[in-house]
Design a protein around this nucleic acid. Sequence first.
RNA 1: UGGGGGAUCGUCUAACGGCAGGACGGAUGACUCUGACUCAUCUAGUCUAGGUUCGAAUCCUAGUCCCCCAGCCA
Length: 556
Amino acid sequence: MNKPVDPNVSNFIRNIIDEDLASGKHTTVVTRFPPEPNGYLHIGHAKSICLNFGLARDYGGRCHLRFDDTNPVKEEEEYMESIKEDVRWLGFDWGEHLYHASDYFEQLYEFAVKLIKKGKAYVCHLSQDEIREYRGTLTEPGRESPYRNRSVEENLDLFERMRKGEFADGECVLRAKIDMASPNVVMRDPILYRIRHVSHPRTGDRWCIYPMYDFTHCLSDALEGITHSICTLEFENNRPLYEWILEEVFDGPHPQQIEFARLNLSYTVMSKRKLLRLVEEGIVSGWDDPRMPTIAGLRRRGFTPEAIRDFCDRIGVAKANSVVDYALLEHCLREDLNQRAERTMAVLRPLKVVITNYPEGQVEYLEAVNNPQDPSAGTRQIPFAREIYIEQDDFAEDPPKGFFRLAPGREVRLRFAYFITCTDVIKDEAGNIIEVHCTYDPETKGGTAPDGRKVKGTIHWVSVEHSLPAEVRLYDHLFTKEDPNEGDLSENVNPNSLEVLTDARVEPRMQAAKPLERFQFERVGYFCVDPDTTAGRLVFNRTVPLRDSWAKIQKS
RNA sequence: UGGGGGAUCGUCUAACGGCAGGACGGAUGACUCUGACUCAUCUAGUCUAGGUUCGAAUCCUAGUCCCCCAGCCA
């Protein structure tokens, strides 16, 4: 954690904890992050991770990582590994406190038996459709199941036989006996256990009955001594059930469920279902496509854990549904990268410049600062020669008003090198500019003129002979709409979310760049080395462009 | 039309009966060997209508709008 915690952070959950601590209700804070291992983590999960682990850190408590693995049909071991990797990468440590809901299956079974013995649960043989019918609707009460008043003995026997595998999938379920007329549908005799003759990633074939979320979660929390069980808004309706179950069977202290609004980000989607769709329809290359809001995607894109944590701190925590502006995420990223990314020069769309008065065959090495924000990053030597590449955008034959880059007759500074003045524009038969001729002023070596004259523009460059070819992948929002859910998702996909440039040129130092290493391409943006990079082929992802006030002026 | 939640600058979020504050975005300017960074100034808000109070974003009443719930998913 590179940043000290702002002592002024205030949100409704901290207020609750402060009160609980002050009143003596709790003497410590124990939270948990409880993902279901059925997919990849995304930035919405990062919010929850930062919240839960952050609270534990700030209050000197602890935060458990618990896999909510109660549905073997959807869950896989592979996901558990990726989740652990992502949480660790984000910078959090659960220490000894790694748990699985499946660790509690035996205890959970005993709690269910206890409930049956209290006459508060029963085995129901209604079919799935019948259960739905009997449940009633939002405005009409449900009806009681004909199996609702079976004797305790019969229920005990039936439940045991469910465990033994005497029933087929779907033949019966264990239900809580609460209130079929409750205005809260969750309380209309909710299902506690269902039968699934499926082997579980962790318990194998030991069980063929699996507890439902509502039964599992509250008891898992209680067993682990969780004090504050923080979840998202859609579980608000489940809170009465959470409390009912604990009240009925759990003797120790009860955790308190607190709900907060999940993260929504403009120009992206956050639901696992929709993310899966993007992958399956080939709209993106995979879960770690750099355009994905998954932790894996963000990592590959070049995001830092520090930037993501800072973002999560800044968005706050509240109960109102909201959509955070993507620009805030970009701001956090740039702020972090500006401090730590070494600078380099790279030309994305090359335009050849011949410096006609520079001796042929001569090469000079010029000193360049690696990171003006961090003197300890040192300097490097960059080769300069008669032929260089500059960015096509940095030259205009007919410069618009306010343009102070290279143009016929104009003098600009080549960063860390010399002042050059454009003398000629070379075109092909079609009239395309293919080369620009300039002269340089030998007196301006290093970038300053002894006579004190100033130039308005400084542009970046690389040597034709010494630079390395590279592929550069430019990313934009995956969707064209702030809210991609408005209308048909696939129609809102941004056709220009990926642009591949294959003719980019980078400084020779990039030969040594390692996958995921981050750089600032001066005047262009922050980039990171894509894992697709091989010995003979450099591939960069644009993490985020630099702010560009010239582009803004041009637009208006 | 049942139940549960929620509405504060364009966006996100503080203020817990006592000066509506911060951040992002936007605008303007300064600086500049990155049109970056940084700095400065500005911009802009309490859903509506009543009420209580010396004083209301906050308490009360009545509305309006938005979200969630009828999986043997979580």
